[in-house]
């Protein structure tokens, strides 16, 4: 470990690695007066895709904010990203995780640290924490923001920072009740943390260099078809989303516009009126789960309370027609709701 500490935070979009990086950077500054430099790889727009935040902290001025190719610590906000890295399905993720040789790996998972399948050569500490579970339980928010939980686990594993200093920075970043809840979530995470101090992995699945691509050999336009999301096995879209909105048939009575559709933060119209339901008053909407992050704003703002959030796992279990991203969720999933959840 050099004088500069390099930390990679790898998450899916809106899981919160960028803000976590910001808070860790402030904690490093607050505690040691360290210089910090950081950079973000933002993923793609709208759809849930991997986001990587890189942080460097050290006593001297750090001239360049750049990706860390020799990280000391890696925080993985969703254990599926280990598979993504292993299949080299997303080169940025593969580099961000797979270049960890020694040091600390902190993973958000329900598995034990020794059960994790590490797709890269590594000798060091592996820590596992069910950050999603903790965040849901303590923060009571869905989708669960796991960033502070992961940062708390990071400090508990590495002792790189003082926990109380970190808590102060968190309280200042999230004023009021939200800050206290996040501090509590980080505390709970530290209690449930499982640490395996000496893990050895000899796999070398990750770091095969990609062969150079001739730009002119690529297709002029990508084929017009549904493609799996970059880096996600089977194009699985709902990764860390736990619930999806469903519009109840017959309740919707807005004439011209759907407020939920307008208020969708992705603003890509993931709620779309089904063609067979054209003409006011609408009987309901189809929800494109390919885009939905499960934030629940649509259900909050729906004028006729026609939209409700339902547990997606339950729907998938009770309704085999659901079929991941290819659904027509309105027709497929609703039956599942009636049969299994409602």
């Amino acid at each position: 470990m050099g004088a500069v500490r390099e930390i990679n935070l790898v998450c899916m979009s809106s899981q919160g690695s960028v803000q976590t990086m910001e808070i860790l950077a402030r904690t490093f500054y607050e505690q040691y007066g360290y210089h910090v430099a950081s950079q973000v790889f933002p993923g793609t727009r709208s759809k849930s895709s991997p986001v990587v935040s890189y942080l460097k902290a050290g006593p001297e001025r750090i001239p360049i904010a750049s990706p860390n190719y020799n990280p000391d610590d890696v925080l993985v906000f969703w254990d599926g990203l280990l598979r993504v890295a292993g299949k080299r399905a997303h080169p940025v993720v593969a580099d961000a995780i797979g270049r960890l040789r020694t040091g600390n790996l902190i993973v958000n998972t329900t598995l034990a640290p020794t059960e994790l399948d590490l797709p890269f050569k590594f000798r060091g500490t592996v820590a596992a924490v069910d950050a999603t579970g903790v965040a849901k339980e303590v923060l009571k928010r869905d989708p669960p923001p796991v960033g502070i939980v992961m940062a708390g686990a990071y400090i508990a594993v590495t002792h790189a920072l003082d926990m109380e200093v970190f808590f102060d920075v968190v309280r200042e970043h999230f004023p009021g009740r939200l800050g206290e809840q996040n501090v509590e979530a980080a505390r709970v995470a530290c209690e449930r943390l499982q640490i395996a101090p000496e893990v050895v992995s000899l796999s070398d699945a990750v770091l095969e260099d990609e062969p150079p691509v001739d730009p002119m050999s690529l297709p002029i336009q990508p084929p017009l078809q549904k493609r799996p999301m970059p880096g996600l096995p089977n194009g699985d879209p709902h990764i860390w989303r736990t619930s999806i909105p469903i519009c109840e048939d017959g309740l919707c009575a807005c004439n011209d516009m759907c407020l939920s559709e307008v208020m969708c933060p992705d603003n890509t119209g993931f709620i779309v009126r089904h063609p067979s339901l054209a003409g006011p008053p609408h009987q309901g909407y189809r929800i494109d789960v390919d885009h939905c992050r499960g934030c629940g704003i649509c259900a909050e703002v729906c004028v006729y309370s026609a939209i409700h959030m339902f547990n997606e796992t339950e729907i998938v279990r009770t309704n085999p027609n659901y079929g991941g991203i290819t659904v027509e969720p309105f027709f497929g999933a609703r039956q599942g709701v009636k049969g299994g959840v409602a």
Partner: peptide, 11 residues
């Protein structure tokens, strides 16, 4: 630059 500077925390 977006992200590389816009979301980069620095002193």
């Amino acid at each position: 630059p977006g992200w590389e500077v816009s979301h980069s925390t620095a002193p």
